[in-house]
């Protein structure tokens, strides 16, 4: 019984793998569309979050100021925010009868970008703060002893922390790419407009198209895998 069930599962996954390869090779327009949109939305979200998150992380990691612990605790807590919860809050804000309803952003890619940017911001802030803090003590004093100005010393710290910071960016991008709640609540899974990989996977699974869902999951995983590996190789080169 169990053996049979396991082999059936293995067959399902193999079938999914076959479909994934087939879908990629055939360049199925709807799959290509969802994949590109996933990359665009999550990429833009990570970009936005980096612009905001890296300086905040640097500040928290390297400076003493009132409320620093509180701010840090706040971002650490937000690391685990449920995506559906964040999506729901933003939905109420962006809804036509919500405070920002006049922007007409709901159910557009921009709304998804905004939501995912807020989702990954805590990752970027916390990881950057940690990375900076770790190199801070050793490097800063040393560079100052060697006659560097405060600004030069800060830049040195940032440069040393870069490998870890870039991993934070990758982790943020992966979280954005793989999340469902925000994309579904703010995008609405509209075909050709806000349909991304994760929302397609969820929809096809409820529709009973299990193989297709697995195929799309494999595509998503491959993207994450390639990006993470590339980042690791770069990190090693940089450190080596």
């Amino acid at each position: 019984m169990i053996g049979e069930a396991c082999s059936r599962m293995a067959l399902d996954i193999l079938e999914g793998l076959r479909r994934a390869v087939e879908l990629i090779l055939s360049g199925d327009p709807s799959v290509l569309d969802a994949t590109l949109r996933s990359l665009y939305v999550s990429g833009a979200a990570t970009f936005l979050a980096s612009i905001l998150g890296l300086p905040i992380g640097m500040m928290i990691g390297s400076r003493e100021f009132p409320g620093r612990r509180l701010l840090r605790g706040f971002f650490n807590a937000l690391l685990g925010i449920p995506t559906v919860g964040l999506g729901l809050i933003l939905y109420l804000i962006l809804s036509r009868s919500g405070p920002l309803g006049a922007l007409r952003m709901l159910y557009t890619p921009s709304a998804m970008i905004l939501g995912q940017a807020l989702l990954v911001l805590p990752i970027l802030v916390s990881f950057t703060a940690n990375a900076v803090e770790n190199v801070e003590r050793e490097i800063k004093d040393l560079s100052k002893t060697l006659g560097a100005s405060e600004l030069q010393a800060s830049l040195t710290v940032f440069r040393e922390a870069l490998p870890s910071v870039s991993l934070a960016v990758i982790a943020g991008f992966n979280r954005a790419l793989a999340e469902l709640g925000v994309a579904l609540m703010l995008g609405g899974n509209i075909a050709g407009l806000t349909r991304v990989l994760t929302t397609t996977i969820a929809m096809e699974a409820t529709r009973g198209n299990i193989e297709l869902s697995i195929a799309l999951t494999i595509i998503l995983l491959s993207i994450v895998f390639v990006l993470s590996s590339a980042a690791n190789v770069l990190k090693e080169k940089l450190e080596g």
């Binding site: 590109l36 665009y40 833009a44 940089l238």
Partner: peptide, 29 residues
Amino acid sequence: QRPTPLHMLIVILTVLLTVGVIHDFLSTP
């Protein structure tokens, strides 16, 4: 200095962003 992973990432993300914006404009609903 040598290009760092962060530089590379910023380049990649900028390219993605540009492609996406162009895609959005071309497919104006």
